[in-house]
Amino acid sequence: MTPSAFWQQVRWVFTKDLRVEVRGGVTLRMATPFAALALLLAPLATGTDTALLRRIGPGMLWLVVILFGMTVTLRSGAREPGPVRDLLTLSGLDPAAGFLGRSLASAVLLFGVTLVLTPLMIVLYAPEGRPGWGWLALLAVAGVMALGLLGSLVATLVTGLRERTALGPLLAIPLAVPVLLATARGTDSAISQQGSLSWLLLLVAMNLALVIVGVLLAGPMDETTR
């Protein structure tokens, strides 16, 4: 397959996934409000100590994005019915292009969730300091991309299993620890004007590793989903 045909397939999967998601509306109508609810409930559990809330705000935001966002990603990755997967295979879809397209679409969805939740977090937790918005944007983009890649990789591993809704998060969340630390702690550093280069590089390394593994192993994994 030529590179241009490959990237055309990536784009096709990306737009298809986003379109299906927009029509289904689970992320927008259910997952995002649920995540917002979690942000509202956390202070009720910890007590409304203003100084404490100021400190934990950014961390809570990313914890919620990872826990709820990952379930959305895992769901959308494993959602396609078997006959549709057959159709895509017979249409000559390269499994690696499918993996990249799905990951990108998930990343965009997660970025959307983060965009909605960030103002809410600022209102509810009133974190102090003036953040470096450039760093925050870079961390967020690298973070949601890593989550998207991880989510669609794990989604393939649990495709077709009865236990997939419970098993997916157990497999994916431990591996998402670097994303939690880099985004939450990186946000801290950005707020205290320290720069977050090392955290960003860590996320870039994670993205690279997941892209390489995912692309190389997409074929063998795809063979097991029929």
Binding site: V20, G24, E80, P81, G82, P83, V84, D86, L87, L90
Partner: peptide, 11 residues
């Protein structure tokens, strides 16, 4: 392949 279950995206 036109299978037993239709290959359509329900959404």
């Amino acid at each position: 392949l036109v299978g037993h279950f239709p290959a359509l995206w329900p959404e």
